[in-house]
Design a protein around this nucleic acid. Structure first.
Lengths: 331, 331
DNA sequence: CTGTTAGCGCTTTCAC
DNA sequence: GTGAAAGCGCTAACAG
């Protein structure tokens, strides 16, 4: 590969001249400028972006780290981040955290490769995130609440309140019993939703029954399995709150297999409001997370930190009940 | 930020020693090794990955460039690429081509930042891709057929055949008339599907009617608008072939608004088989693109090129008809 | 305007 | 084993 040196030589100028000309500086005028550009073209020259970033000690890039690149959850979030990045003329790259501490994610967290990162990857340990924190490298975490390090900022959704709201809505709609399919117990998000669920039950004088609280993985398969268990147990609640939409989809499947109709026989509610939620049969009632807004804020904060502004250590969003057709009103 | 130099100094060794120790070389044994590691920890040292890549002239990273990071189309594709990358211990980053030639995508194509790229971004001009090609930098294009440059490899789906198959299926199912909602005319994919559609019609002695061929953008909104137009035109065909699933979703919406039932009143078929396709009401019959396989092959080829193997310039996959419930059998 | 030059932070010969 | 030093490709003083 030809370097800028080669270009300079061929154009018969100094490297600095070539550099200026190539980056469109007004320092270099007509004739010389053309010469350089021509030489670059003739040599099929490509700038080495790595060298540039190294030299400038600045990448103008932020990374969004997702636990599952192929998940259905993120598109709105990405859009939020992307929009702001574009506006600031920053680049956004997204990478996955598959493989834990040996993953691409780990590399981008630990090493200097971008100017900041936004993290939504439950499989990365908090410990690891803390270790990766350093001055001038903002880390925004979206799926937990991490405090104590000024370079780590958390943006969360009020999961407890959301869980409460979802459960309360089910009860207000006339359901006497509501089950819960929760996420994995190592997920802070899930734990908070469970807490909200229990609170709502108790607020209505209902005692949470452990037989109606089943936990599984935050996936379609997890929801399917958990629902199967619930069904085989024999005694079904009148409604069930799924700790996320993906699980609810799996639940819908299991329910369908057993000819249990939604919402005629059982009402269900999800959490997240992922993209495909309105297309389900029936369209799923769910607690919407303002993902676009979260993404936008996350990016916004990164830029603030990068520009030396003061920011809070923690931000919270509320969820919003999106009523669709999976909850039947009245017993 | 402390550098490896600082670490070396603090540990009282030479930089080279620090470098070896830090990267776990067996050259450095017990005592010194510990000293270095300790110093690194005390200084909260982070390796600068950019410097390393520059020095090594190798990034061990491939980029997947997508026109729309938040689109629903890609998850299977990503999974395919990701899996193979993981296996080869390469990192995968994905970025968007929003903003054309000024985008992140352009930067990753034009500059040396990764060892290769996989491209599925119709908004990047072929001209630009050609210009970005260079020795030792494999570019795999997934949405068009580019020939003539040994560093550009195309992987395509047989769109013509797929379009033919879709249309033929509709006709075989008893439909006497089939409309087409196509994608933008600058999309090679769309053009080929249109060609297949016309061929199928003609093979059955049906003359393609331009009033029944409407083109729009490859989005839900595009499909919605195009379908509205078709409806307002007054004379509806018995079936319509949407050039992609997203458009079909928009079409479903428009149809529903006008109380036209699918498949009772009209049959529809899509193209792609995106993730949410089975959840639609009704589940959408569509031509599946083997996205996972394509992703896997794309990654495979990149590694082959990188390892100096000989590869073809062009690969083709066939689509597969996935029968669901949006096409009614019999008139 | 243009050329010379000093690094950005790292790896890797090569000599000891 | 360990250290000195070259250099990956680029930018940005600085001097002319």
């Amino acid at each position: 590969m030809p370097t800028i040196k080669d270009v300079a030589k061929r154009a018969g100028v100094a490297v600095s001249t070539a550099s200026y000309a190539l980056s469109g500086s007004s320092k270099i005028k007509g004739a010389t400028r053309e010469k350089v550009l021509l030489a670059a073209k003739e040599l099929n020259y490509r700038k080495n972006g790595l060298a540039m970033d190294l030299k400038k000690s600045k990448t103008k890039t932020i990374a969004l780290i997702l636990s599952d690149l192929s998940g259905p959850f993120y598109s709105e979030l990405i859009r939020g981040v992307q929009e702001l990045a574009l506006e600031k003329e920053y680049d956004l790259i997204v990478c996955g955290s598959h493989g834990d501490e040996s993953s691409t994610a780990a590399k981008f967290l630990r090493e200097t490769r971008t100017d900041g990162v936004i993290l939504l990857a439950h499989n990365i340990k908090s410990e690891f995130i803390r270790e990766s924190a350093r001055e001038g490298f903002p880390i925004i975490v979206l799926d937990r609440h991490l405090s104590g390090d000024p370079n780590i900022i958390s943006i969360n959704v009020n999961n407890r309140k959301g869980g409460y709201h979802a459960t309360d809505y089910l009860i207000q709609s006339g359901k006497k019993s509501v089950g819960l399919i929760s996420g994995p117990s190592n997920s802070a998000d899930s734990q908070d939703r469970v807490a909200g669920y229990k609170e709502a039950l108790e607020a209505h004088g209902i005692t949470p029954l452990s037989k109606w609280i089943i936990n599984g993985k935050f996936t379609q398969e997890g929801g399917y399995q958990a629902t199967k268990m619930l069904i085989h147990q024999g005694d079904m609640p009148e409604a069930v709150f799924y700790a996320n939409d993906e699980m609810a989809i799996g639940g819908l499947e299991a329910l369908k297999e057993h000819n249990i109709r939604v919402p005629e026989d059982i009402s269900i509610i999800g959490f997240d409001d992922i993209q495909l939620t309105p297309y389900l049969a029936p369209p799923l009632t769910t607690m919407r997370q303002p993902k676009y807004e979260i993404g936008k804020l996350a990016a916004h904060i990164i830029f603030q930190v990068l520009e030396g502004d003061q920011v809070n250590e923690h931000y919270t969003f509320d969820t919003e009940l999106i009523k669709r057709e999976s909850v039947r009103i009245g017993k």
